[in-house]
């Protein structure tokens, strides 16, 4: 009993001790990350040796192919073509999905009408949409756009609906008490409420959308990253195929992190948790 009541402070400074432990943990984690990369490349090298570097090129070959693509400079047109198609697909998805989401969030009858269809459309695998788009448009730049639109529209609709349902009724009452018109209420209360939800939808879709876009391009594109991958594949240059793929992944991650995340932070600067990252 007594040893529970009498408690003396530990002899060393507890804060410094905690800092040391945290630092050691960080070091160990960084070490494991590096070890992970080394293991991955080792496995790749081993695979190249096993399958032969014609079937699975060595990392250094892929790296060289990547450098060649970047140096030749023609990757710019293909990247921008792919990015443009992805965003065009988003625009179509927003134009269709946002009004449906608005109706679903606003009126219970429309919700009943759309809900199951939109949910099912959101569950259909992206590859199905890619195939459908190819069937509709064949060899055309419209195929990838349609595929992205089909993949994204259900998410946008569901998120907008969720946003509308989350509108603060007390702000609507306030607006009415001050004699604001329905258009003013829509512009100043409803739309700002759903912007974060639309952004969440776009970021969620983006991860899937650019993969679908590239995939559709591989089979039916006339330009873009997917088109280049197909061309290199037909030339049986697997190193170039992989290089295009890696470059595109890196590029899209950069867009995700820099463009989308930054513009979201700017638009949502009024939210306390966003303010620090926006200004």
């Amino acid at each position: 009993m007594t040893d529970q009541l009498v408690r003396t402070a530990p002899p060393t400074d507890p804060e410094a001790g905690a800092k040391r432990t945290a630092k050691r943990r960080r070091l160990r984690l960084t070490g494991l990350v590096i070890l992970g990369w080394v293991a991955m490349f080792a496995l790749w090298e081993y695979g190249s040796w096993w399958f032969g570097s014609r079937l699975l090129p060595r990392p250094i070959e892929v790296f060289q192919a990547g450098v060649e693509i970047v140096e030749s400079g023609n990757f710019v047109t293909d990247f921008s073509a792919s990015v443009l198609k992805t965003f065009a697909g988003f625009a179509v998805a927003a134009a269709v999905g946002a009004p449906i989401g608005y109706l679903m969030g606003r009126y219970n009858y429309w919700r009943a009408f759309f809900h199951d269809g939109v949910t099912i459309a959101g569950t259909i695998p992206a590859i199905v949409y890619a195939v459908m788009s190819l069937i509709v448009f064949g060899l055309s730049n419209l195929g990838p756009i349609l595929a992205v639109a089909l993949v994204s529209a259900p998410y946008i609709a569901l998120n907008v609906a969720e946003g509308i349902r989350g509108v603060d009724k007390s702000l609507v009452t306030m607006s009415e008490a001050f004699g604001r018109t329905p258009q003013q209420i829509r512009r100043e209360v409803l739309i700002p409420t759903i912007v974060p939800f639309v952004f969440a939808a776009i970021r969620m879709c983006f991860a899937v959308a650019w993969k679908v876009e590239a995939l559709t391009e591989v089979f039916g594109g006339r330009n873009g990253v997917g088109f280049q991958i197909r061309t290199e594949y037909q030339l049986y240059d697997i190193a170039a195929v992989l290089a295009w793929m890696f470059l595109f992944i890196v590029f899209m991650l950069i867009i995700e992190r820099l463009v989308l995340a930054k513009s979201e932070a700017r638009l949502l600067a009024w939210r306390p948790q966003e303010r620090s990252s926006a200004l």
């Binding site: 007390s170 702000l171 008490a177 004699g179 700002p192 009024w270 939210r271």
Partner: peptide, 15 residues
């Protein structure tokens, strides 16, 4: 013309 002050501030958080 009427003005209204509510129990809670009811300001638009994004403005």
């Amino acid at each position: 013309r009427m003005g209204y002050v509510f129990q809670d501030p009811r300001l638009l958080p994004w403005r």
